[in-house]
């Protein structure tokens, strides 16, 4: 189905929540981060701009690092390292 959460390598995950609207992307991102170990990285792919703003601030407050953020073809790719 629509949402995908995969382990793509050692300590690397991929979360695809394209098509989802608020509040799903941030819920899934938060839950993914909870499941991961410290230092693991997840690439979140989403297309709901308002969630990006929330996820960024959430990471800032909790202490995760947003390593990279880019927009391509209407999709947003965020790399987050759990801190």
């Amino acid at each position: 189905m629509a949402m995908k959460f995969e382990k793509t390598g050692e300590g690397i995950y991929m979360l695809d929540v394209c098509g989802y609207v608020c509040p799903h992307p941030q819920i899934y991102t938060k839950k993914s981060l909870e499941k991961m170990a410290e230092g693991d990285v997840v690439e979140v792919i989403l297309d709901n701009p308002s969630s990006v703003e929330t996820i960024t601030q959430m990471c800032d407050q909790v202490g995760h690092d947003v390593l990279d953020k880019k927009t391509e073809g209407g999709k947003i790719y965020m790399k987050i390292k759990k801190g």
Partner: peptide
């Protein structure tokens, strides 16, 4: 759109994620 307003997640962001943005 520019401000990424999302009333729907205002209370959720706050209660669950502690993000008071909205």
């Amino acid at each position: 759109q520019y401000g990424r307003f999302c009333f729907a997640s205002a209370s959720r962001d706050l209660f669950a994620a502690g993000v008071p943005r909205m």
